[in-house]
Design a protein around this nucleic acid. Structure first.
Length: 486
RNA sequence: CGGGGAGUAGCUCAGUCCGGCAGAGCACUGGCUUUGGGAGCCAGGGGCCGCGGGUUCAAAUCCCGCCUCCCCGACCA
């Protein structure tokens, strides 16, 4: 990356910055296939850490993992009309296989409802079979017009939860519960604050009754939909004839939900925290929380320094810290510093002859807190505990910083349309405004400003004095969060 | 699909206007010296100049056709 490039809210510079980070931090590289991505080991490790955390949270809420086919029979996708309309334009279709033309084309799944529900309709007979709480870790394909590493790729990795319930209330509860799980993950693990709420009809998942979402704000002040949770009502049950027998012997359609987050979250992580020097990773999702850089002049020092580095590594591992000793030869320490900073490692430990002499190590944080010394000498004795605590503090500080940044880029109570238009043209960010509830008004604002209603926020995010008028001047029915978004 | 830009070494690009030996920096390989914030010297490897045709004694360069990629919009997690 060019030295001294500012990370500005001008999205064009930001775009270039983003692409460079993805390359230089070795997260992903270009694939020979249009819009697909190659996730490199360092980037994939972040995904594995995300998977581990999310999977634990899914299990803790009673879900089980399963796996369903990659291909959907084309006819299955047509079963739910809105679902078909929503996804048909962006599907990839297999027409030939095994050297012959297929009788029925196969659709590479853009999401799995159309294959899961025909199967679950056989699994579900009685109210005793409910609820069904499933999750699948998989890849999906959506042939989008424009792609961007992690944020929008032709093929992406994700998890999709699919559940069936005996009542509408239970399905709604599940939808909200999983939205909450996502929120907790994004705040506690990604250190990324989000606003949760309901999507408007125009942004609702194809075939859903209601779509809820977690909306995050990136450093260029554009919004990002980071996760969604859908209450599908009985739409899919009707389309795929998923019925169960109640205690009274009646036959009822199940109530279903689906929810998902994808490798887009890696993009979110980059854009929520990164700075001019590169990636900034919250410790909980950093492949390495600490990197040890040994420094030496001659063979004798080399031996001493590596011995000390090894002791540090063992002690850190005992304290539950992911640590890596950068033993690369023939490379100046400075090069290694820049390398690991670019890759977002939260803490670096320098171990040189002077430190060995003093029985200490030199700790340097990726982000120096206000008023703190950049370099911090620590006694070797008990360094595991000290660094574990420091990393936990860094995790908290990363979230606090992101939250403060979001709040500084949030405007509330805007009613004047020209003022709103100017805001979207210049600073961007989240704008809490009124909305009359009319879809045409929503579209007009989108055409005028390229901003959209990100979410009708949940109660805790709403303003104490919500605007009484929509941007169009009509009385406001909902307070909404508007922003330009990815 | 509209608007803009680019295809030359692994990467970033110069050379194209005005035709004349295929270039630079970085990266890579080997050697020596270095190592507390992006190391130095020496030696070396690496090319279908996007593809096809034409003009010419001679084409990366001029002409015609085609292809691909990137950026900005419309579509979207």
């Amino acid at each position: 990356m060019a030295k001294g490039r500012e990370l500005t809210p001008q999205s064009q510079d930001f775009s270039a910055w983003y692409n460079e980070i993805v390359q230089q931090a070795e997260l992903a590289s270009q694939s020979p296939v249009r819009g697909c991505m190659v996730i490199r080991p360092y980037g994939y490790r972040i995904w594995e850490l995300m998977q581990g955390a999310l999977d634990g949270m899914f299990k803790a809420t009673g879900h089980q993992n399963a796996y369903f086919p990659l291909f959907l029979p084309k006819s299955a996708l047509d079963r739910e009309a809105q679902h078909f309309e929503g996804f048909a334009p962006e599907t990839a279709i297999v027409t030939h296989a095994g050297g012959v033309e297929l009788e029925e084309p196969l659709v590479v799944r853009p999401t799995s409802e159309a294959i899961i529900w025909p199967i679950l309709s056989d699994w579900i007979q009685s109210y005793r079979d409910l609820p069904v709480l499933l999750n699948q870790w998989a890849n999906v394909v959506r042939w989008e017009m424009r792609t961007r590493p992690f944020l929008r790729t032709t093929e992406f990795l994700w998890q999709e939860g699919h559940t069936a319930h005996a009542s509408e209330e239970e399905a709604e509860e599940e939808t909200r519960r999983m939205l909450g799980v996502y929120r907790t993950f994004m705040e506690d693990w990604m250190a990324m604050p989000v606003i949760t709420g309901l999507k408007t009809d125009s942004e609702r998942f194809a075939g859903a009754l209601r779509t809820y979402a977690c909306e995050a704000l990136m450093k260029d002040n554009k919004g990002l939909q980071a996760g969604t949770s859908h209450n599908l009502g009985q739409n899919f049950a009707r389309a795929f004839d998923v019925r169960y027998q109640t205690e009274d012997g009646e036959h009822e359609f199940v109530w279903s939900t689906s929810w998902g987050v994808s490798t887009r979250l890696i993009g979110a992580l980059i854009m929520a925290h990164g700075d001019d020097a590169g990636l900034i990773l919250p410790p909980k999702l950093a492949p390495y929380e600490v990197v040890v850089v040994p420094i030496w002049r001659d063979d004798e020092q080399r031996e001493q320094v590596f011995e000390a580095g090894e002791r540090v590594r063992i002690e850190l591992e005992k304290a539950g810290v992911r640590v890596h000793v950068d033993a690369r030869e023939g490379m100046n320490p400075g090069v290694k510093y820049y390398d690991w900073e670019r890759r977002g490692v939260p803490l670096r430990l320098e171990v040189g002859p002077r430190d060995v002499q003093a029985e200490s190590v030199m700790a340097v944080r990726r982000v120096t807190p206000e008023g703190a010394d950049r370099k911090l000498p620590l006694p070797m004795e008990g360094v595991g505990r000290v660094l574990r605590d420091m990393l936990d503090a860094i995790q908290e500080e990363t979230l606090a910083a992101a939250l403060a940044r979001r709040e500084s880029a949030t405007v509330r109570g805007l009613e004047d349309y020209s003022e709103f238009q100017r805001l979207m043209e210049t600073d961007g960010g989240f704008a809490f405004t009124g909305w009359c509830g009319d879809g045409e008004c929503e579209q007009q604002v989108k055409d005028d400003t390229r901003s959209t209603i990100r979410v009708i926020p949940d109660e805790e995010f709403r303003s104490p004095n919500a605007p009484v008028r929509c941007l169009c001047g009509e009385p406001s029915v909902y307070e909404v969060v508007r922003a330009r978004a990815y």
